[in-house]
Every structure is written in C-alpha cells, then in structure tokens.
C-alpha cells in the first residue's frame, strides 16, 4: 500500500518529486494510517480513487459510514476525472465486527479479486464508539489484521497466477488510538499488535487550519513499523498536505529539517489569491 500512497502523493504533488519512497524488499507495503481522523478518511478516499482511475485497480473499501461529504474536492483536485473508473471501487458498509470479518473472509470467492483493500476506522469495528473506552482484549484486533494479511497474501497469488499485472494485493487500515491519559498504554498496545501485521505506518498530524481562508495543512509521515538498518539511509518520508478552501488537494515533499510552511500572513494572502482563482 505504501507504493499506492506514493502514487497518491505524486499524483497530487504541487511540484517535482525528486525522492522515491523506497523500503527494503522484506518490508511488506501494507499500511496502517493513524492520526487525524478526517484527514485519514480523505487520504483513504484519494488512495481508492487514484488506484481505480490511474492504476486501473479493483478496490474494496470497507467503512461503517457512507461518504456524504469530503473536505477535498475531487473535481478540483483531479481535472478530467473519469467517473466511470470509480466503478472499480466497491464500498462495503459492514456494520458489525462479525459482518466485517465475514465480508473480508469471503473475498476469495470473488471471480475478480481486488488489488487493494481499504478499511476505514478499524477501531469502530472493534466495538469502540468515538471517544468510548478502549477494549483491553488484543485478540480481535490481531484476528482482523491477520485475516486481512492472509487474504491479501492469497489474492496476491491469484493475481500473479492470472498474469494481469494487477498485483500484489495490498491493504490499508486506518486506526485512531488516541485516548485520554490512563488509556494511553491500552492504545499503544493495540497499535503495536496491529503493527505486527502491517509493516508501514502513515501518521497524519494537523499543522494548522486557517479560519479566514479555510485552508488546512497536515504533516504526513511515512515510515516502517520497525527500525530499518542504518545502511538503508532514510528512515521516514515527510510530506505536507494542503487542502485549500476550494477543496483542492496538494502534497509537497519535505526534506529533513526543511521548514516548508511559509509565514502566516504570506499563507493567507497567497491562499486567498489562489483560492479565488479556483472559485472564479
């Protein structure tokens, strides 16, 4: 999945991208996304759209909540978007953990298997309402992650066997372990269990939102869930995600230590001008 995320970053890049996202061959690209909930949901949606339209991949998108609105504008971000390509994305609205497990387990029955499986808000399936207490039982999260891993591994074999160049099958899961003080340990434990099965982590943190222009900005960190050997060099990749008031999205790669965000006043002026152009 990290490879598809890189396609997303490049697809919506505001300038040239000079550095590849590259992990050692033994690091599987299945990814856990955590951090800002709204931004994660947008990123998952962009990943689904990019995989379906640019790469022509079949996508299965599991979520409990239908998309009614998004912070991002697809029309504004993807000029010339072919809506028929979105038919490659199948949304599955499983309501309970049992339904979700059965839906994932049945993917091997499909004649045309997906190359990308996306799970939005996994902790909702683990019976945790937003803001509710964390479950202390580690087995359900391990079961879900292991089933996804085993399913993706099997579908990869199928896709390779068919020689359609649609493989491997990857999966991406968003998970929000943020919690109040005493539950920090439980949240860390759940995340550590998830990261046994998903070897790439994508962390999203909001840098600032501008109430005047409506522009929002996040930092996106992409790294392996285990330390890489020193000779590999880069341990993490950083990007800046900007959503303008028009809903247009752009990613900018950040080099280590680079202060990518301009001064506040400049941002506002520049954004207002740019956004006015988008709206006109």
């Amino acid at each position: 999945m990290a490879d598809i995320l890189e396609v997303v970053f490049r697809r919506f890049a505001s300038g040239p991208v000079t550095r590849d996202v590259r992990f050692p061959p033994d690091v599987e690209s299945n990814t856990v996304v955590h951090g800002d909930r709204d931004c994660s949901r947008c990123l998952l949606f962009l990943a689904a759209v990019t995989a379906a339209t640019d790469l022509g991949l079949k996508v299965v998108f599991f979520t409990q909540t239908p998309f009614e609105s998004l912070q991002v504008s697809l029309r504004g971000s993807v000029p010339g978007l072919k809506l028929e390509a979105l038919k490659n994305v199948k949304f599955v609205y499983a309501k309970t953990l049992e339904e979700f497990l059965e839906d994932v387990a049945s993917l091997h029955e499909l004649d045309s298997p997906p190359s990308l499986i996306i799970v939005d808000d996994l902790d909702r399936y683990l019976h945790r309402p937003i803001g509710g207490p964390l479950q202390d039982d580690l087995s359900p999260v391990a079961h879900v992650a292991a089933l996804l891993h085993d399913t993706a591994a099997f579908l990869t074999q199928i896709l390779h066997g068919r020689g359609e160049n649609k493989g491997p099958c990857r999966f991406i899961v968003s998970f929000y372990p943020e919690c109040d003080g005493g539950e920090t340990h439980a949240a860390d434990l759940l995340l550590s269990v998830l990261e046994r099965y998903l070897q790439v982590r994508c962390t999203l943190g909001e840098v600032r939102g501008d109430g005047v222009t409506g522009r929002k900005e996040w930092r996106v960190y992409l790294s392996a869930t285990r330390p890489l050997q020193d000779q590999w060099g880069i341990q993490a990749w950083q990007w800046c995600l900007v959503v303008r008031s028009s809903g247009a999205v752009e990613f900018r790669p950040l080099i280590d230590g680079e202060q990518e965000i301009p001064e506040e006043q400049n941002i506002s002026r520049e954004d207002v001008e740019t956004d006015n152009k988008h709206l006109s």
């Binding site: 059965e102 091997h108 029955e109 079961h143 089933l147 085993d150 399913t151």
Partner: peptide
Amino acid sequence: DQQMTHVLSGQ
C-alpha cells in the same frame, strides 16, 4: 468456498 469463508471468519 462458502464453508471456507465461515472457517476464516472464525464462525
């Protein structure tokens, strides 16, 4: 295949 789905999902 249907029985396999049940096995995999833990039913």
